[in-house]
């Protein structure tokens, strides 16, 4: 089932299936390692805060609105 990254609760793991949004956002987000096919775990999701995501051995803070543009599926 396809879910937006922003809808995944802390502790949830999955695989990125698509990165939407404009080209500039796509370039920025892929440069930090969030590409289709990569697996991740959501570490924190608090209202008013960026999401914390663990991906490729890195802890990333990503603006929560931007997480709506990342599609994922459960592993």
């Amino acid at each position: 089932m396809i879910m937006k990254l922003s809808d995944i609760k802390p502790g949830g793991k999955g695989r990125i299936t698509a990165v939407t949004g404009d080209a500039a956002f796509q370039r920025r987000i892929t440069a930090v390692g969030m590409t289709p096919g990569s697996t991740f775990e959501v570490i924190r999701r608090e209202k008013g805060f960026p999401m914390l995501i663990s991906i490729r051995n890195t802890l990333l803070a990503v603006n929560s609105e931007d997480c709506k543009q990342i599609e994922t599926e459960a592993e």
Partner: peptide, 12 residues
Amino acid sequence: ENGAPRTGNCKF
């Protein structure tokens, strides 16, 4: 379409 995610995938 979705050029950056696709080339990004190739790079990784």
